[in-house]
């Protein structure tokens, strides 16, 4: 069951940028693409734990700032150079506000 909580305004994140939310499960990166879609992913690259929120956002991907692994914002799948998956979270925009599905975050072992 979903429970959407209001996190911030869409404008609080720069286009092709990201911000971080602190949660009991660790940091979640909230991305905004060039065409104003939002995605929430675990802020941790499966390679060496790089903060994905500091990467360059292009199309619907982000490149990890530490060693350039490219991760799909839609699926959390690593597209290269290595393999792996990043946890994704429910998120949407409504009336210019970013809403996050809190239910997933409350689960002790979300990841």
């Amino acid at each position: 069951m979903s429970s959407w909580i209001d996190i911030a305004a869409l404008e609080d994140i720069p286009p092709r940028g990201a911000r971080v939310i602190r949660t009991p499960q660790g940091c979640v990166a909230v991305f905004r693409t060039g065409d104003d879609r939002v995605f929430a992913l675990e802020d941790r690259c499966p390679h060496r734990n790089g903060p994905l929120s500091e990467g360059i956002v292009h199309g619907t991907s982000v490149t990890c700032p530490l060693h350039n692994w490219v991760i799909s914002l839609e699926t959390g799948q690593v597209g290269g150079p290595g393999e792996g998956t990043v946890e994704t979270y429910g998120i949407r925009v409504e009336n210019g506000r970013i809403l996050l599905d809190e239910a997933r975050l409350r689960r002790p072992d979300a990841a």
Binding site: A8, R19, I21, R22, P24, L105
Partner: peptide, 15 residues
């Protein structure tokens, strides 16, 4: 810029 700090902190609420 506010971007230096987290967008939201849910750790306190969750606790």
């Amino acid at each position: 810029p506010r971007s230096w700090s987290p967008l939201a902190d849910l750790t306190t609420e969750a606790a």
